[in-house]
Simulated assay, not measured.
Amino acid sequence: MIKIISCILLVFASTYSFACKDPLYKDKYQITNFSGYSDVIVARIITSKHNDDEMYSPLMSFDAAVLEKIKGALTPNQVIHVSAKIEDPRAACPLYFKENSTYLLLLERQEGELQISRFSFPIESNNEHFSSYLSQVKSGINIH
């Protein structure tokens, strides 16, 4: 009986270990070094494509309208196309963006193409920490 219970527990534990984890939003924004990001913006998502054939429907790409430039060459009202960076997930959930919602985004350029990492902690404007994170990011990039 103990062996059966142990086997059942192992099955549940191994299934849980493969589950992805959403980022925890605390008082401090988790990124403080922005040198690896070519563009930091606030943008409204126009369209968002996800791969529904894979577990967790990972983000493939999205189109967005830039509302505010914090760092980089992008300009307000510019419409951009961004691809999801291909990376080892390390148990972090893939990104998911709601169309017509506004987000703080940290983007990278790879061979001229804008990409977003699942580890860049994008945050939707309706999150209670959005304004604080936006201020922290601007201070970290030395914009006042």
Results as ranks from 00 to 15, higher is better:
20 C>D: 03
24 L>M: 02
26 K>D: 01
28 K>Q: 01
31 I>V: 10
32 T>I: 08
35 S>E: 11
40 V>Y: 14
48 S>G: 08
48 S>Y: 07
49 K>Q: 10
51 N>C: 01
52 D>M: 08
52 D>L: 14
55 M>P: 11
62 F>P: 04
62 F>D: 01
65 A>D: 14
65 A>P: 01
65 A>K: 14
67 L>M: 14
70 I>Q: 07
72 G>Y: 13
73 A>E: 13
73 A>F: 08
75 T>G: 05
77 N>Q: 15
77 N>P: 04
79 V>N: 15
80 I>W: 00
83 S>A: 10
83 S>L: 11
85 K>R: 15
91 A>S: 15
96 Y>R: 10
96 Y>P: 05
96 Y>S: 08
97 F>V: 07
98 K>Q: 12
101 S>N: 13
102 T>H: 06
102 T>M: 03
102 T>K: 14
106 L>F: 01
106 L>K: 13
109 R>M: 03
112 G>W: 11
117 S>Q: 11
118 R>I: 02
118 R>H: 03
119 F>T: 02
120 S>I: 04
122 P>W: 00
124 E>Q: 14
127 N>F: 07
128 E>S: 13
128 E>L: 07
128 E>P: 05
129 H>G: 06
130 F>N: 05
131 S>T: 15
132 S>M: 08
132 S>K: 12
134 L>P: 04
135 S>G: 04
135 S>Y: 08
136 Q>G: 06
